[in-house]
């Protein structure tokens, strides 16, 4: 390749290669985030518009009200446990798929739910959980009294696990698929019993996939509002519901923006911790 001679030529080359991506990031990530940050520092007008004065009052309100702290806490709690359940289900599942003869079919089955709109899939759970739904039909068929499954935290957990499981399984599968299984035999050969062999020879190689899957699941699970809205009724309010409410019926965009910024700060904190523990390469693996 010819060396770029003039600064202008070099600039043009940079614009051609990095330009479109950078433009996309600036237009759809950076500017909206800045707008939201500015909005979070403003106040609600009488008609719900954004007006001065500027200040940290929205943040102060958020952190001084135990209700909001509880909502954030509940979001983290449900998000965390959903992620734990997803990991417990998804970890063996990824291994099962990777060693299966039918792995193409199984992978397709994991991906198939994405062919249907997310909202519709959540509605489908209503059909399962409602009073005359599939699950209660099964329960009453055994002569048991019908259960009150909707709205419930249980339903929220089930739907969250269902929704985000593929996001965990796919990156982990990619990590598992690359593993050379003769390493497990090598570990046996060197005197490691099966559990020890797996733990020492195979598990460390899945850690990057595990972290990637964890973040890919935990972040949206904490921020979700549709699942809690539809399946949790008024019982389960998450930070996502709060934000939706502020931008919707409460007409307080300023406070909604502040809540969004808090959520984003928590997620970035998580990513930062991840990068710290996994090194810079960790983030590459994530992407």
């Amino acid at each position: 390749m010819r060396e770029a001679t003039t600064p202008w030529e070099r600039l043009r080359r940079v614009l051609f290669t990095v330009g479109p991506g950078a433009l996309w990031l600036v237009l759809f990530i950076l500017i909206p985030t800045l707008i939201m940050f500015v909005a979070s520092l403003m106040s609600r007008g009488s008609l719900g518009q954004l007006v001065p004065p500027f200040g940290l009052h929205n943040y102060l309100r958020f952190f001084s009200d135990p209700l909001f702290i509880e909502i954030i806490g509940r979001s983290l709690w449900i998000g965390f446990w959903s992620t734990v359940f997803i990991m417990l289900l998804g970890y063996p599942l990824a291994f099962y798929i990777a060693q299966s003869r039918y792995k193409e079919v199984l992978l397709l089955l994991v991906v198939i739910p994405f062919f249907t709109n997310f909202l519709i899939r959540v509605y489908a759970w209503i059909v399962v959980f409602q009073k005359e739904g599939l699950l209660n039909g099964l329960i009453t068929a055994f002569g048991l009294p019908p259960a009150e499954l909707l709205p419930s935290t249980f339903a929220v957990y089930v739907a969250t696990v269902y929704t985000y499981l593929p996001f965990f399984v796919l990156p982990l599968y990619a990590a598992v698929e690359r593993i050379d299984w003769s390493q497990l035999e090598a570990a046996y050969d060197l005197g490691a019993r099966p559990i020890r062999a797996f733990w020492e020879a195979i598990f460390p190689q899945t850690v990057p996939g595990l972290f990637a899957g964890f973040l890919l699941v935990f972040i949206p699970a904490v921020g979700t509002f549709v699942i809690a809205d539809l399946l949790g009724g008024g019982k389960v309010t998450l930070v996502g519901n709060l934000i939706q409410l502020q931008f919707g019926s409460a007409q307080n965009w300023a406070f909604g923006s502040a809540a969004s910024m808090v959520l984003m700060a928590m997620v970035l904190l998580g990513l930062w911790l991840y990068a710290r523990t996994q090194g810079e390469k960790g983030l590459d693996k994530l992407v």
């Binding site: 050379d180 003769s182 390493q183 035999e185 090598a186 570990a187 046996y188 050969d189 060197l190 005197g191 490691a192 019993r193 062999a197 020492e200 020879a201 460390p204 190689q205």
Partner: peptide, 20 residues
């Protein structure tokens, strides 16, 4: 007897070294 209790060791064709 399982491999981890046998007094033998193996050099694998692809070496099977632990990459981590």
């Amino acid at each position: 007897v399982p491999p981890y209790l046998r007094p033998v060791n193996t050099v694998f064709q692809n070496y099977a070294l632990f990459p981590h």
